[in-house]
Simulated scan of single mutants.
Amino acid sequence: MSRTRSILRMVIIAGCAVVGAAVGVCFQALRITGKPQEFRSVAKLVAAYPPSVRNASRDYAPEDDSDFEGTILETVESDMMKQRALERVRALHPELQEREVLVRATKTEGTGIFNVQAVGAEPRYTQVFLDALLEEFTSFRQSFREQGQNKVMKVFLEAIVDMQKRVEDSFALAEKARSKVESLPAKAEQERLVARLSSFRNQRDDLRSEIKALAAGEASRATLESKMMLVEQEIQTLETATNALEQAAVEFRIASEKHAQAKLAYEKMFDKIQEFQTVLSSTVTDLVVIQERASPAVEQVEDWRLPVALGAAAGGLLGALAGFFISLALSGPASLPPVPPKASS
């Protein structure tokens, strides 16, 4: 193949790749901009597995929690709950136009918190629908319990939710204080300050000895005294910084103690619930309350960078492939080298 033909083929392939990438970008841009607006509202539920149910059988295993959690997740997302929420919205907000709302529920790992998300085309309706869904969900579960049992357990559950919030807040404060004291930068800064403070204190002691050895009228004494003042100022600055680190250590100790106290109170409350659960009927299978109601719905904006990049890559690849076949069709088959004649015998 001649050099000119090779260059022409490369130009065709490159041009088709560029055109394909541009088409891919345009396609993804049209796809993203052509999507209808979606608004998302979120809420939270708190659920706890009663201690009496855990202690009712020695064969209880932690994996039993998965059934309890799965029941909550499936119930929240069920068509029955959506229908009950729709009827509630119709009754309480007849002025709102009905919209399709998608509901998803997830559990925060290691906690009893369930996050419920609603996505719809209209922000006000989406928020109202999610609030109605939460109300219907809690009402549905409460319908399995006796009214007296429900009132007693609701009081304790509200106390649990409050204590759980205190435990989480105190833990966050303790971790924040810990980062100021036990993190590597904090320790390095403390060591640096201590070393500098020790060095300046040694300088101060040396200057005091030198000044004491000089007579009052000597000129060098005034120079040493001026230097002494600068050293004293630096020592005061370093002592202030060191005191701040010591204060941070005190704050960390206090925050840790408060977290321990909150955790102990939380555990004692669960012990009290266990005592009440032994009296209540075994039909009380779980405790569920609304921790956070539906937030104002905000628009979901899709990240366009990755889809556009994928569109450009796919379009460029397809364009390059098309350019390769086009170049083959335009250039025709490559000429073969001539075959030398056979020698006559």
Rank of each mutant, 00 (worst) to 15 (best):
M10Y: 06
I12K: 04
I13H: 05
I13F: 01
A14F: 14
C16Q: 01
C16N: 10
C16L: 07
A17I: 06
V18C: 12
V19N: 00
G20C: 05
A22N: 00
A22K: 04
V23W: 09
G24D: 05
C26F: 13
C26W: 09
F27R: 05
A29I: 03
L30M: 07
L30F: 04
R31D: 15
I32R: 05
I32H: 02
I32M: 04
I32L: 04
G34T: 04
E38A: 13
E38W: 06
E38H: 11
F39K: 09
F39C: 02
S41F: 07
S41I: 01
V42C: 00
V42K: 14
A43M: 06
K44A: 09
K44Y: 14
L45M: 02
L45T: 00
L45Q: 12
L45H: 10
V46I: 10
A47I: 08
A48V: 09
Y49A: 08
Y49E: 03
P50M: 00
P51G: 09
P51K: 10
V53K: 13
R54E: 12
A56Y: 06
S57A: 08
E63T: 11
D64T: 07
D64I: 00
D67Y: 12
D67A: 15
F68W: 05
E69I: 03
E69F: 02
E69N: 09
G70L: 05
T71W: 02
T71M: 00
T71S: 10
T71F: 03
E74M: 08
E74S: 14
E74N: 12
T75Y: 00
T75H: 11
T75L: 14
V76G: 01
V76I: 11
S78F: 06
D79P: 00
M80F: 14
M81H: 07
M81S: 10
M81Q: 13
K82A: 15
Q83A: 08
Q83W: 07
Q83V: 08
L86H: 13
L86S: 15
E87N: 12
V89T: 07
V89S: 02
R90M: 05
R90A: 14
R90F: 06
H93Y: 13
P94A: 09
L96I: 04
L96A: 02
R99E: 00
R99S: 07
E100L: 07
V101I: 14
L102E: 15
V103I: 15
R104C: 01
R104W: 04
A105S: 13
A105F: 08
K107E: 03
T108R: 11
T108Q: 10
G110H: 04
G110P: 10
T111V: 03
T111M: 03
I113C: 02
I113S: 05
F114H: 08
F114G: 03
N115P: 00
N115D: 13
V116R: 06
Q117S: 15
Q117Y: 02
V119R: 11
A121Q: 03
E122P: 06
P123D: 09
R124F: 11
Y125S: 05
T126F: 00
T126G: 03
Q127Y: 06
Q127F: 01
Q127D: 01
F129M: 12
L130G: 12
L130V: 06
